[in-house]
Design a protein around this nucleic acid. Structure first.
Lengths: 150, 150
DNA sequence: TTTTTTTACTTGCAATACGCAAGTTGAAAC
DNA sequence: GTTTCAACTTGCGTATTGCAAGTAAAAAAA
């Protein structure tokens, strides 16, 4: 087996991924949209991670430009802006949950729900489907039928 | 189903993960050790990503402190320092490869080997085992039997 | 209808982190 | 013994971040 010289992956997938969420705050925001049901600026701010307002704004723009979030006015209240995860973002769920499982294994202080790791490992697609359904539900609560167009 | 209020994951696995590789350069270094067989400072430098020497040094320290890399003098040449991925780092492979699959799907300009994504999706554990064996081989080339102690 | 509040940002500035170029150290090769 | 190689370190200008305060538009209250 060749030693190090596999094809020179530029246009490298890892670099591509790093460009999008190889950043602490983007990472956290993806968590908030995918796993915590957060959608609006103020919800992200209040997530308790201490992100500052200018950085939050810049990361929302970055993630929107990367095709990970879609910005929409809340139809129930025009002063409220919501950011919905795109299919591209949702397609990250399997890998993302894989990371969660990894972190649960190695973080001594994890407070993740007990049994989550086992549940995911036993039935990954089912777990992804369950979380995906939660995302749909949250979107539907805000957008109604228009959520289908996301 | 409750809306957003799952248990307040602090000691949150995603935050834990973000702390370790929620950084462009750490991300790239993990790729280099896990997927490209690179082990030494100069190999990382020459990976063509344009990392500067001070940042490289700081990230190697950070990853070592995070328990992702082990620093060892090359027994074949005392002026050469090698950084080996720990079990903790290697345990990231499934999630990491999941990200690769995701990136292949969404990066129009990907140059990843065709069929890699399909191969991983069809047989993830086999793919992980194959790559893991490559890592073992590289480590063994450098350390000989001492590689077992990693 | 005016005022206050809510929500989503922007702006300015000090502090930190990064990128680049050059310098240092120790082991190896010659 | 001198040169080379490999792994860092240091200094400095630039870019990014974090913090505090300010602005704008819509909604709710008075």
């Amino acid at each position: 087996m060749a030693k190090t010289d596999k094809p020179n992956w530029n246009g490298c997938p890892v670099r591509y991924a790093a460009g999008i969420f190889g950043d602490k705050w983007c990472f956290i925001l993806l968590r908030d949209t995918l796993l915590r049901g957060k959608r609006s600026y103020s919800e992200f701010l209040d997530a308790g991670e201490g992100i500052s307002t200018n950085i939050l704004a810049s990361r929302l723009v970055r993630l929107e430009e990367a095709g990970m979030l879609i910005r929409k006015i809340d139809p129930r209240k025009g002063s409220r802006v919501c950011y919905f995860p795109t299919q591209k973002a949702r397609a990250l769920l399997p890998a993302f949950l894989g990371m969660v499982v990894w972190a649960i294994e190695f973080d001594e202080e994890t407070e993740a729900p007990d049994g989550f790791a086992a549940g995911f490992l036993e039935n990954p697609t089912g777990t992804v489907a369950r979380i995906s359904a939660q995302i749909d539900q949250i979107n539907r609560d805000i957008l109604g039928d228009a959520a289908d167009a996301l």
